[in-house]
């Protein structure tokens, strides 16, 4: 066992690995079964928001409930779009650049924010988000202001010798694979960080910043690090979105979008890495299914939230954990107890 890896028994680990591999293979095969452009679009959006929600949770486990995350997505989106549009840089370069610029702004805003904690942090982070969105309005010349930014280049086609050229404008399938790979990549990094000494320090600060600093954890440093990592991936997600959607409006990165991301994370459950993944999937796909309800559709969204709050204190992922613990206890009772 290495710090942060909670599973005490090695025996169940291979089941986990097989389950993950199976899930990822299934997701890779998905376009074979789904040929509706509309469904693919929904899946792509789910993937983009999954990256954003997971990166938001990284900030959250360090005890910082940020209400600015969508703004950092927007920052990445605009930086990437502007560099690709005005300077003709390739999106393969501007997407990481979008992530880096979101990270830089996150760090700059993060240092002063370490002076406040808990609810106060949340409220101040709200202003940071609003200021970023307002800034987008001020640089109207580059961002298109409230009319929006159009003509963002799509991802350039990829030519691998011996294989047919992958053209991102031909259909949504190449985009689906791009975002699936991107999501797997981002989530692997976030997962690795959480299950390391760094992740433990984040969680320690969230539980008691006094104790954490008494054992030498640099509270401000680790909080800013969480923001840097979280904002970087938000920027990546936003930049990817820009080159997929090819149109940006700043209102899609405002207060309500940040709140939406927060809902995905909290409804999914903050206690588990899979919380935001489950939360995003449920809250993006279920409302799509109930679209025919028209003006009544928001009740479905709100209803899910209330259901979770009243009956699943640890979020949807917490429910899985509860079931798992019950199941394990059941198994343990059947096993003869060994004295160790």
């Amino acid at each position: 066992m290495v710090a942060g890896e909670h599973a005490p028994s090695g025996g169940r680990n291979w089941i986990k690995t097989v389950a993950y591999a199976g899930l990822i293979i299934l997701l890779f095969l998905l376009p074979l079964f789904v040929d509706s452009v509309y469904y693919l679009h929904t899946f792509i959006i789910t993937l983009i928001y999954t990256i954003a929600a997971c990166s938001l949770r990284t900030i959250l486990i360090s005890g910082q409930l940020s209400i600015a995350h969508a703004a950092f997505m927007g920052l990445g989106a605009y930086v990437s779009s502007i560099f690709a549009r005005e300077l003709n840089w390739t999106p393969w370069l501007t997407i990481p650049l979008g992530g880096v610029s979101a990270m830089v702004v996150g760090v700059l805003a993060g240092y002063p924010l370490t002076r406040v904690r808990a609810i106060y942090f949340s409220m101040v982070s709200l202003f940071v988000g609003l200021a970023i969105v307002a800034l987008m309005g001020v640089f109207q010349k580059y961002t298109g202001g409230d009319i929006g930014l159009i003509g963002i280049p799509p991802l350039p086609s990829i030519t691998i010798p011996g294989l047919p050229t992958i053209n991102f404008l031909s259909s949504k399938i190449p985009y689906y694979y791009f975002f699936l790979l991107l999501t797997v990549f981002c989530l692997m990094i976030l997962h690795s960080l959480e299950n390391s000494r760094i992740g433990m320090s984040w969680k320690a600060i969230a539980q008691s910043y006094l104790v954490a600093s008494s054992v030498g954890i640099n509270e401000a440093g680790f909080r800013v690090l969480a923001l840097a990592v979280g904002c970087f991936f938000a920027g990546i997600a936003g930049a990817g979105y820009a080159h997929y959607n090819m149109v940006l409006t700043r209102s899609s990165f405002g207060f309500l979008s940040s709140v939406n991301l927060l809902i995905y994370v909290l409804v999914g459950g903050t206690g588990s890495f899979f919380g935001p993944i489950i939360g995003t999937t449920v809250l993006v796909i279920v409302p799509e299914i109930f679209r025919w309800l028209k003006t009544f559709a928001p009740f479905v969204f709100g209803g899910i939230m209330l259901l979770v709050v009243f009956f699943m204190p640890q979020g949807i992922a917490g429910l899985f954990e509860q079931v798992k613990t019950k199941f394990l206890h059941f198994q343990e009772r059947k096993k003869p107890r060994d004295v160790s």
Partner: peptide, 26 residues
């Protein structure tokens, strides 16, 4: 740290010696 086990409480407190870098941990 109320949400950590006793052992995790102690393990988490080892921050200084030996120290790992961000990239090592990642």
């Amino acid at each position: 740290f109320p949400e950590f086990t006793v052992f995790e409480n102690i393990v988490t407190s080892f921050n200084l010696y030996p120290k790992s870098s961000f990239w090592e941990a990642l």
